[in-house]
């Protein structure tokens, strides 16, 4: 077993185990804890797959940003300590069975496909040290240059590469920022506290 396969097995097992633990946990904060482990091990899988920038972005944006936001939401919406909104046992069993069935269907269909795997797709260049330095190629691809396939800026038929999607995403984020702060601003309660059943 090569080192990469060993690390992959460890992190894949951690990812899957904690994803299942997210489903099984009853309190929201435990769910958040398992979600952090799951997303963190997924970032490790990204590093293993030579996608170091994506892995770091996953850690910074997902784990450090989005999840902290979610936990903040948990604290703001909890009506008591360790609030549980449980599901009945029957529902859990049915959901588990359907989930297993669904997993079987998804994986059977996915592994049935013959993906175009070029013979030269050997990114296993651990020995040369050229692992996962995707920063420059990624940055250039945002400008429309794909040096690995010999495309320079302006020569690509599509023109600007990912520059336009990037701009759209940034405007989208700005709109989301404004919209979220508008939605979440402090308002008068619709129902007075003492009248709630």
């Amino acid at each position: 077993m090569s080192g990469e396969a060993f690390l992959f097995t460890v992190f894949a097992a951690m990812t899957c185990f904690s994803a299942i633990a997210v489903v099984v946990s009853q309190t929201v904060v435990r769910m958040a804890f398992w979600l952090v482990i799951s997303l963190g091990s997924t970032a490790a899988l990204f590093f293993l797959a030579n996608a170091d920038f994506v892995g770091a972005a996953q850690l910074l944006i997902y784990v450090g940003g989005t999840l902290v936001l979610l936990v903040f939401g948990v604290m703001l919406t909890a009506s008591g300590p360790y609030m549980k909104i449980g599901t009945s046992t029957g529902e859990t069993v049915v959901a588990g069975l359907i989930g297993l069935l669904f997993l079987f269907v998804v994986f059977a269909s996915v592994s049935g496909v013959n993906w175009r795997q070029p013979v030269t797709a050997s990114a296993d260049n651990v020995a040369t040290g050229a692992v996962g330095n995707t920063l420059r190629p990624l940055g250039l691809s945002f400008l429309g240059a794909r040096p690995e396939s010999g495309v320079l800026p302006g020569e690509d038929a599509a023109g600007t590469g990912y520059l336009l999607p990037f701009e759209i995403v940034s405007v989208h984020l700005l709109v989301v920022l404004v919209g979220a702060s508008y939605l979440a601003r402090a308002k008068r309660r619709a129902v007075p506290v003492n009248q709630v059943v």
């Binding site: 904060v29 952090v36 170091d52 770091a56 450090g64 902290v68």
Partner: peptide, 28 residues
Amino acid sequence: AADCGLFIILAILSLEVFGIIMAGYSSG
């Protein structure tokens, strides 16, 4: 010697806060 070392180090340091929040919430 990662090519995006600064990005990775900022990302990892941002995980520390999660432990603090967990400690705060789970202490009861």
